[in-house]
Design a binder for these strands. Structure first.
Length: 705
DNA sequence: TTAGGGTTAG
């Protein structure tokens, strides 16, 4: 009767029936009863109760009963208890071994799964197709390609390649090791393919950054009569995002909605949120997120990352705050990795330190990604010593934390230290990657280390066989340009093997601004506006170049270009942390509760610094307005609002740390020098380009506008 | 009369 219930899916009735049987004492359950009841029980405590009865009755030795117990424990995630049952068994068949292996695999215990597999081989038990398809998925997480290839050879020798599960598992395994040709050849040799085979092949190319090939296989799959399922769409969403194909993102989303896939499934919802945010359409991403019936921690992480990667750090922090208010959601490693870069971005040191404390508490400091994000927070918040201390604590066998600490010293102008860290990295046998060299080259250019920078560029190609990308080229242009070798920088661009992008021309334009080269600046901007017509920051740079040499007709020309092209300046904002609270100020904004006091303080400050020699430089105002209004505009630049707020909110002589999303304007740079003098405060401003340490009327960056 | 074991994801 019990098995009748279970066979018909009425598990609860099966268990009830069993309890009644025992209670009434009418029939004594035997070893035929227990496998069925164990299959039916819906919770761990029922399972444990049954285990103790079985134990008392001595049925644990029965192969069927013991296997069912083992399965029950794995099903509830208590695979360790399953292992204990397994160890006590006197007789095991192949199915028992397979159940133990897959029990560990499905509970994320790859090492234990492999241990059981090895024991099985030692005992001379021959594996079958089920063993192979269980063991293959753990090879990649364990980074054990040898094991995967051993299984593959076994498959060929024993004719198991005709099993569709085995071939699918092989495709997935090789794809995870980036061995696409092998994955593809296994797919090609399959006699019978199912939807999983197609999904696996598509995902293989998608995960190895070949969205075009992946899309081709999707089309072929449809041609072969297969209908896409949830997993196909998860890959498709990523394919569209990788190709930057905003048009098709909506079609993919529409299909998902039409097939009614999005409501019940968190996975596909998360994939769509990720797709829109990677395409820069964060509003859509948020809307999809809001419309999801169920959300898990990954849904939140995806949205936070989306905001952070689209440069909207404050919004990312807002989402994180809301997430922390949800009792159901426990932050994961991924949450920390998504929120910490937002803190780095705006210089939210206290918030970062809070997360640091939390990281120590939950034992995640040994995670290289979390550790590296924290190093980055400390470095970008001006705490290089703390960053260094942390660097010594995190595992550093991979290039990731090294890149962060090298770049950290670079943005503070400590290029020599970056170079010596790179030397240590080489000594410790850690292989640098392309990011290491971007960090190194930019460190060299900020510190004016021209020869060393050029040597690094050579080393990267000759010793490490890394082909330079646009970022590396941009660094070299910056390196040469900043040092005044403008013609060399221009020649370098002309000889580049790839088409220069905006960052390369932008580096040249920036160098022309520093060295006052109007002709080359105009030329660079012509190229620049061809590849990026919308970035107003570059127009401002060009205007500065003209203004500096008094070529007002040039300033007017740039101003009308901006107006004719209907360009709007990216709103400038600055942030500051005072008394553990984080404040953001937008240029010209008067909505802050202390706005009146801030503007009053600024008026006093401006008067004082004018007395000691400050003269406003209106060339930084692109708007076509009267002089007194220009002064008004300069005075309400976001960095000044933040500085004034810092001055009125902290005791005298307290250092002030500001973050600005754009470059600090030349007039603010000059004014801040004077402010640091009269207030006797150290003022640190990190802008989108570098750190500026102001103290006693001077700035460490040495730039002159 | 009883059971257990496999492949794809954000």
């Amino acid at each position: 009767m019990i098995s009748g219930f279970v066979r018909n899916g009425c598990f609860e009735k099966g268990v009830d029936c069993y309890y009644e049987l025992v209670k009434e004492g009418r029939v004594r359950p035997d070893f035929f009863t227990y496998p069925v009841v164990l299959k039916a029980c819906g919770c761990l405590s029922d399972g444990r109760k049954i285990h103790s009865w079985v134990f008392k009755l001595g049925y644990c030795l029965d192969l069927f009963v013991a296997s069912s117990l083992l399965h029950m424990y794995s099903r509830f995630g208590f695979v360790g208890d399953g292992r204990r049952v397994f160890d006590e068994m006197s007789v095991r068949d192949l199915g028992t071994w397979n159940a133990m292996i897959s029990g560990f695999c499905q509970n994320g215990k790859a090492v234990e799964a492999l241990d059981v597999f090895r024991e099985m081989c030692m005992e001379g038990v021959k594996m079958d197709s089920m063993t192979v398809s269980s063991i293959l998925p753990v090879c990649a997480p364990l980074n054990n390609l040898d094991m995967g290839m051993f299984a593959h050879v076994y498959v060929i020798k024993n004719g198991l390649e005709f099993d569709v599960y085995v071939s699918n598992a092989l495709i997935n395994m090789y794809a995870k090791f980036g061995m696409l040709a092998l994955a593809r050849s296994i797919f090609d040799q399959m006699m019978v393919r199912d939807l999983v085979s197609w999904n696996s092949l598509i995902a293989a190319y998608e995960q190895n950054s070949d969205p075009i090939a992946a899309l081709g296989y999707f089309v072929e799959m449809k041609r072969n009569g297969f209908q896409p399922d949830i997993l196909t769409f998860v890959s498709l969403a990523s394919i569209v995002a990788q190709s930057g194909d905003a048009e098709n993102s909506k079609s993919v989303h529409c299909c998902i909605i039409k097939l009614d896939l999005i409501r019940g499934d968190i996975f596909i919802g998360n994939a769509v949120v990720d797709m829109y945010s990677k395409l820069g359409n964060i509003d859509y991403a948020h809307r999809v997120f809001d419309g999801m019936d169920n959300k898990d921690v990954i849904s939140w992480n995806t949205l936070i990352t989306g905001y952070a990667q689209n440069g909207l750090a404050s919004e990312a922090m807002e989402v994180y705050k809301t997430m922390r208010e949800c009792e159901m959601i426990v932050p994961s490693q991924g949450t920390l990795v998504s929120i910490l870069p937002a803190y780095s971005h705006v210089g939210a040191l206290r918030q970062g330190m809070k997360v640091h404390g939390h990281t120590v508490k939950i034992g995640l400091l040994s995670d290289i990604y979390v550790g590296t994000c924290l190093i980055d927070v400390y470095a970008k918040c001006g705490r290089l010593n703390d960053a260094m201390m942390l660097f010594k604590q995190v595992p550093r066998k991979s290039s990731v934390p090294w890149n962060a600490i090298i770049s950290g010293h670079g943005i503070h102008g400590q290029g020599e230290k970056s170079l010596s860290l790179f030397g240590e990295m080489e000594e410790e046998g850690v292989k640098p990657d392309h990011v290491t060299f971007v960090s190194l080259l930019s460190a060299c250019s900020h510190a004016g280390l021209i020869d060393q920078g050029q040597q690094c560029f050579k080393l990267m190609q000759e010793k490490y066989c890394i082909q330079p990308g646009l970022k590396h080229f941009g660094c070299i242009v910056d390196l040469l340009g900043r040092a005044g070798h403008l013609d060399m920088a221009y020649d370098f661009i002309k000889n580049m093997p790839v088409r220069p992008d905006a960052s390369v021309w932008g580096a040249l334009l920036g160098a022309c601004r520093i060295h006052g080269n109007v002709e080359l600046g105009a030329l660079a901007s012509e190229h620049l506006f061809e590849v990026d017509v919308e970035n107003v920051g570059y127009y401002v740079l060009l205007s500065n170049i003209y203004a500096n040499v008094g070529r007002w007709e040039g300033v007017d020309k740039v101003r009308s270009l901006v107006n004719n092209r209907g360009l709007k300046k990216t709103p400038g904002w600055s942030s500051i942390e005072v008394n553990n609270r984080f404040g953001v100020f937008y240029t010209g904004n008067r909505s802050h509760p202390l706005s009146e006091e801030i503007y009053k303080e600024l008026k006093v400050l401006m008067a004082k610094i004018k007395n000691i020699g400050y003269v406003p430089d209106y060339s930084f105002v692109l708007q076509d307005v009267e002089e007194d209004e220009k002064e008004q505009i300069l005075t309400s630049h976001s960095e000044r609002l933040a500085i004034a707020f810092g001055i009125i909110s902290t005791p005298p002589k307290t250092p002030i740390h500001i973050f600005k999303n754009l470059r600090v304007c030349g007039d603010c740079h000059n004014a801040t020098k004077y402010i640091s003098k009269i207030t006797e405060r150290e003022i640190v401003v990190r802008d989108s380009n570098r750190f500026h340490h102001f103290s006693n009327g001077d700035c460490s960056c040495g730039d002159h506008w």
